[in-house]
Simulated assay, not measured.
Amino acid sequence: MNFASDNIVGASAPVLQAIMQANAGTMTAYGNDEISKRVRACFNEIFEREVSVFFVTTGTAANALALASAVPPYGLCVCHREAHIIDDECGAPEFFMHGAKLAGLPGIGAKLSAEDVVAYLKSLPKAVKQMPPKGLSISQVSEGGMVYSLDEIAALGAICREHGLSFHMDGARFVNALVSLGCTPAEMTWKQGVDILSFGATKNGGLMAEAIVVFRKDLAEALDYRSKRAGQIISKGRLIAAQFEGYFADDHWLDNARHANRMAAFLSEGLLQLPRVRLAWPTQANEVFPIIPKTLDQALKAAGILYNPWTELSLPETERVGDHKVLIRLVTSWASREEDVRRLLEVASSGLSREAAE
């Protein structure tokens, strides 16, 4: 049983079928094919306006190229200190930004608050020796599995407009947040001030399906060239675009995310029924962050259940893991099986019962 990530499962059947259909015959190369054109039109429909769409193969490429478009080499991009762009991408965003820096701020559940962002911006000296803030990036869902509400996104968007910052959203788990909020893609992005989005599908049923969605035309002007220089204009681009066609058809993307979130809620509720188990923060999408006894951690591992330990950096000030406990992350996916979740809960309950009896 593997709860380490939503990247550990393969692609969904509709996505694979779409690739197989796109594989037949010949088509224009480098993203100029009819499938790519159809999918770009589909993005326009989904976001209720004309957008610029650039297909890439990885989330790292999407984030790095998006931020390179949004932040000049002398600028500063504000993000959470545990954001994927600052913690998990080997400096790729800063590399592609050609010297621009990422500034990480604290926040519970790896979320930025408007108040903390404003305080940080006001603290920066205005002299030329200080890199000026030029961008803000949030992860939706956050690295702590938390979802920004529409009001929270709008507040950050207002700050960006006031201070002249480009607003980037890392949407590796975009649709998990979307179904959690019950809103539309437009309501979660440009209507709240988001300028550029890294739209992820790989974690939710794609094979390698990521896109940069741009709402501000000036940020899109050089992205073709940036993508080419980064090796992200794929010769058989139709096979990347086709994944989105299978992904969007019949609301498959929404169904996948609803299932993943439902499995996480089921897991979360089950864990809260166990003694000496609590959550670091609420479960809002498809990631669960329980604080469990170290003895339970050992029992789960002994049963062959895979997951990752997690950092305590984003805990509330009043929360401490404690000497005999550990904070872990459990992730569910579009392919998670209810029987596996039940089995994890059974192992956890049995392990705690044995410990109490000894």
Rank of each mutant, 00 (worst) to 15 (best):
I85H: 08
C79F: 05
A62E: 11
P72H: 01
R81Y: 07
A92M: 14
G75C: 06
L67A: 02
L76A: 05
L76G: 02
R81C: 10
L67N: 09
A70N: 04
A83M: 04
G91W: 11
A61I: 06
E89Q: 15
G59I: 10
E82H: 13
V71R: 07
A92I: 01
N63E: 08
A92W: 11
C79A: 12
I86E: 00
L76W: 00
I86H: 04
G59M: 11
V78S: 00
P72K: 08
H80P: 07
G91C: 11
A62M: 10
A64W: 07
A62I: 08
T60N: 11
S69K: 01
P72V: 04
H84P: 00
G91P: 12
P72L: 02
A70G: 09
I85P: 03
H80K: 04
H84R: 12
V71E: 10
A66W: 06
P72D: 06
A61N: 14
H84N: 11
H84A: 15
R81E: 12
E89I: 08
C77G: 05
D88C: 11
L76S: 07
A92N: 12
N63C: 14
A83D: 14
P73Q: 07
A68V: 03
D88L: 15
V71W: 01
I85S: 11
D88W: 10
A68M: 03
E89V: 10
V78N: 00
D88G: 04
E82P: 00
G75V: 08
A92R: 13
Y74R: 09
G91S: 12
P72Y: 02
D87Y: 13
E89A: 11
N63H: 01
C77L: 07
G91F: 13
V78F: 05
A92F: 12
V78R: 03
L65D: 05
G75A: 06
A83E: 02
V71I: 11
